[in-house]
């Protein structure tokens, strides 16, 4: 592993240390909200610090706070995924019999064109979500990716449930406008495991 010149490395570490010091309380507080208790939050925070330290030995860090937050967000997601608390749809298989799993497999691999298209779709989707106004975006992400009910989101955002519904409505309409303009491309289901499927006609 390449190492940085000693002076640069020290400067790196010093900047990181002072950044950790001033953000430790904030990070543990935020992690406690995400992982549910202070002890686990402290563990995750320690893990974050260890990783950024290792990184600081080999790379110049331009913005220590941004790196710290990126790592914290990433490890918090990993921790909740490990517990199966979030993003469950991504691994959940409706039918877990062997036949069901075989049925989930695509008949053929994607063609190179499809791979390129897919990558563009992915970017478009990310940008569409990122471009939502703050409150609708927060509500949408909590509902879809953190599996939170509108009631829970209402508590977290400090608004009524009907306001959460308004945010969701707003988010959905904006996403529809942005993503269905490219006729069909972005809404073509892609081969992947475990799409949670309940239709309105259940």
């Amino acid at each position: 592993m390449p190492r940085l010149e000693e002076g640069v490395r020290r400067k790196n570490i010093r900047a990181l240390e002072s950044c950790i010091k001033s953000n430790h309380g904030l990070l543990v507080g935020w992690l406690t909200k995400k992982v549910g208790n202070h002890d686990d939050a402290s563990d995750v925070a320690q893990d974050v610090y260890m990783r950024v330290y290792r990184f600081a030995n080999v790379e110049v860090i331009e913005n220590p706070q941004a790196l710290l937050f990126k790592t914290a967000a990433n490890l918090a997601i990993n921790e909740l995924k490990r517990r199966g608390r979030i993003l469950r749809r991504h691994v959940q298989v409706d039918d877990d019999s062997v036949a069901g799993q075989v049925a989930e497999l695509p008949a053929e691999g994607p063609t190179p064109e499809e791979v390129v298209d897919h990558k563009q779709d992915i970017d478009a989707m990310k940008r569409a979500i990122g471009a939502l106004p703050e409150k609708p975006r927060a509500a949408f992400i909590m509902n879809r990716f953190e599996d939170k009910t509108y009631a829970a989101i209402a508590v977290e955002l400090g608004v009524s449930e009907s306001t959460v519904e308004k945010y969701m409505m707003d988010a959905l309409k904006r996403l529809r406008v942005r993503l269905s303009s490219k006729q069909g491309a972005a809404i073509l289901p892609l081969p992947r495991k475990g799409r949670r499927g309940k239709t309105g006609k259940s």
Partner: peptide
Amino acid sequence: LKSLVENLDQVGEQALQEEWERELHAEA
């Protein structure tokens, strides 16, 4: 509309990561 939204699940992790980073910066 339902499948458009469900299709977004595949960028869920990245979207959540970005959102949580934004949250941390906002708190700071």
